[in-house]
Amino acid sequence: MKDKLTKEEVLHVSRLARVGISEEEIEKYQVELKKLLDEVDKIKEVKNYDEELLIAPYDHDTVLRKDESGEMLSNEEIMKNVPASIGNFVEVPVMIND
Protein backbone atom coordinates (compact mmCIF):
# COMPACT_ATOMS: atom_id res chain seq x y z
CA MET A 1 0.00 0.00 0.00
CA LYS A 2 1.36 3.40 -0.90
CA ASP A 3 1.93 5.82 1.94
CA LYS A 4 0.93 9.04 0.25
CA LEU A 5 -1.40 10.46 -2.36
CA THR A 6 -0.08 11.52 -5.74
CA LYS A 7 0.37 15.19 -6.44
CA GLU A 8 -2.52 15.03 -8.91
CA GLU A 9 -4.82 13.51 -6.30
CA VAL A 10 -4.02 16.31 -3.88
CA LEU A 11 -4.65 18.95 -6.54
CA HIS A 12 -7.93 17.26 -7.41
CA VAL A 13 -9.27 17.43 -3.85
CA SER A 14 -7.95 20.96 -3.46
CA ARG A 15 -10.00 21.94 -6.50
CA LEU A 16 -13.08 19.99 -5.32
CA ALA A 17 -13.06 21.89 -2.03
CA ARG A 18 -11.98 25.16 -3.69
CA VAL A 19 -9.09 25.45 -1.27
CA GLY A 20 -5.92 26.65 -2.91
CA ILE A 21 -2.65 25.08 -1.82
CA SER A 22 0.87 26.26 -2.45
CA GLU A 23 3.59 24.19 -4.14
CA GLU A 24 5.36 23.76 -0.79
CA GLU A 25 2.24 22.46 0.91
CA ILE A 26 1.48 19.74 -1.61
CA GLU A 27 3.95 17.24 -0.20
CA LYS A 28 2.62 17.70 3.33
CA TYR A 29 -0.95 17.14 2.15
CA GLN A 30 0.09 14.05 0.20
CA VAL A 31 0.95 12.41 3.51
CA GLU A 32 -1.67 13.96 5.82
CA LEU A 33 -4.66 13.39 3.56
CA LYS A 34 -3.54 9.83 2.92
CA LYS A 35 -3.50 9.18 6.68
CA LEU A 36 -7.06 10.41 7.00
CA LEU A 37 -8.24 8.46 3.98
CA ASP A 38 -6.68 5.26 5.29
CA GLU A 39 -8.54 5.78 8.52
CA VAL A 40 -11.94 6.24 6.81
CA ASP A 41 -11.17 3.22 4.65
CA LYS A 42 -11.68 1.12 7.75
CA ILE A 43 -15.38 1.39 7.05
CA LYS A 44 -14.80 -1.22 4.36
CA GLU A 45 -14.13 -3.75 7.11
CA VAL A 46 -17.68 -3.50 8.39
CA LYS A 47 -19.71 -6.27 6.83
CA ASN A 48 -22.85 -6.61 8.92
CA TYR A 49 -25.30 -3.75 8.65
CA ASP A 50 -28.84 -3.29 7.49
CA GLU A 51 -30.09 -1.03 4.73
CA GLU A 52 -31.81 1.60 6.85
CA LEU A 53 -30.07 4.99 6.90
CA LEU A 54 -29.74 7.38 9.80
CA ILE A 55 -29.33 10.79 8.18
CA ALA A 56 -29.68 12.57 11.52
CA PRO A 57 -31.25 11.52 14.83
CA TYR A 58 -34.54 13.34 14.17
CA ASP A 59 -37.36 12.64 16.62
CA HIS A 60 -40.11 13.84 14.29
CA ASP A 61 -40.95 14.55 10.64
CA THR A 62 -40.82 17.98 9.06
CA VAL A 63 -43.59 20.29 10.18
CA LEU A 64 -44.34 22.65 7.32
CA ARG A 65 -44.27 26.44 7.66
CA LYS A 66 -47.36 28.51 6.87
CA ASP A 67 -46.96 30.61 3.74
CA GLU A 68 -46.85 33.93 5.60
CA SER A 69 -44.18 36.55 5.17
CA GLY A 70 -41.88 37.75 7.91
CA GLU A 71 -39.27 40.41 8.44
CA MET A 72 -36.77 41.18 5.73
CA LEU A 73 -33.44 42.97 5.84
CA SER A 74 -32.76 46.59 4.98
CA ASN A 75 -30.11 47.21 2.37
CA GLU A 76 -27.90 48.63 5.08
CA GLU A 77 -28.08 45.36 7.02
CA ILE A 78 -27.41 43.28 3.91
CA MET A 79 -24.32 45.33 3.11
CA LYS A 80 -22.96 45.29 6.65
CA ASN A 81 -20.54 42.42 5.99
CA VAL A 82 -20.42 42.48 2.20
CA PRO A 83 -16.82 42.98 0.98
CA ALA A 84 -17.89 44.78 -2.22
CA SER A 85 -21.15 46.34 -3.37
CA ILE A 86 -22.56 48.72 -5.98
CA GLY A 87 -25.83 50.47 -5.18
CA ASN A 88 -28.33 47.93 -3.94
CA PHE A 89 -26.31 45.06 -5.35
CA VAL A 90 -23.75 42.70 -3.91
CA GLU A 91 -20.74 42.79 -6.19
CA VAL A 92 -18.79 39.77 -7.38
CA PRO A 93 -15.33 41.02 -8.33
CA VAL A 94 -15.36 38.98 -11.53
CA MET A 95 -17.74 38.39 -14.42
CA ILE A 96 -19.84 35.25 -14.31
CA ASN A 97 -22.08 33.53 -16.84
CA ASP A 98 -25.69 32.74 -16.00
Partner: peptide, 10 residues
Protein backbone atom coordinates in the same frame (compact mmCIF):
# COMPACT_ATOMS: atom_id res chain seq x y z
CA UNK B 1 -8.60 22.82 5.11
CA UNK B 2 -7.62 19.20 5.63
CA UNK B 3 -11.10 18.27 6.75
CA UNK B 4 -13.00 20.01 3.99
CA UNK B 5 -10.69 18.58 1.35
CA UNK B 6 -11.16 15.06 2.67
CA UNK B 7 -14.89 15.68 3.15
CA UNK B 8 -15.29 16.87 -0.45
CA UNK B 9 -13.45 13.81 -1.65
CA UNK B 10 -15.62 11.46 0.40
Amino acid sequence: KRRIMVGSYL
